[in-house]
Amino acid sequence: MLHLDAAQRAAVDQHHEHLLAEFAALFDVDRDSRVKRLSLGMRVASFLGALALAASIFFLFYQFWGHFAEAAQVGILIVSALASFGLTMWLQAHDATRYFTKLAALVAVACFVLNIMMLGQIFNITPTDNALLPWAAMAFLLAYSCDLRLLLAAGICCVIAWFQARVGAWHGVYWLHAGERPENFFPVAALLFVFPSLVAHRRFPSFAATYRVFGLLCLFIPLLILSHRGWASHLDLDPDLIEGGFFLVVGLTAVLILLVLTRLRRTFRPPAGEGAP
């Protein structure tokens, strides 16, 4: 057992205090629950402030938008998208807490979405689902560079919308109405569920779960809709049969087969190191 006298104990305490101060200065960590509560409150306040600032800027421009010439409108849209993206990157290099970087990343994606949407309105461009791809790309880029799950979810939503629109369009449905056929979501559900198994997310441990959650949502919500609207199915079957649980039985059977296969694979997997030279 180690017995410390008062002077040694004071030296240890001082060392710990010094370490904590260093961590607080370097990584901006919260040293106790009081500081933690305070920083949470400040985050909420700054989030609301950022939201109010963004809304006020939006309405300021909205008020005078009609008075700008076409070229000025396009210029403002492009500059706002570039400036917000640049601000995010600058903050990423200088913001130790990364909180303001995440706020700026959200604003950057919102500006980019607004940029493309407003261009469509100004020049009366035919609506296209392809606009979802650059939005998804920007959301994924900032989600992975800022480690932001909210933007990952936004990017996944864009991919889901684009995929189901494409599947619907291949069936001859206009892309804006493709969502009326719930089965259009099944291919993207499979893709999202498998994606984390194909691409390792070691640096982003929470991202894999997000992909799987959205994959399951794309499976279960269409199933729920089909259980109420059997006529919306692509299959030429009696709507009552579909509403009575046709897809549910097929889906559960598939999940059971998958579970059995996974269990068999684990059971018969050779022990680690076997077969190694």
Binding site: G86, F112, N115, L119, L142
Partner: peptide, 18 residues
Amino acid sequence: HTVGVGIGLIALTNAVAL
């Protein structure tokens, strides 16, 4: 890389639309 891809994405998307 992130800066390059981001600026490229914004520029390319606007260029295609315009």
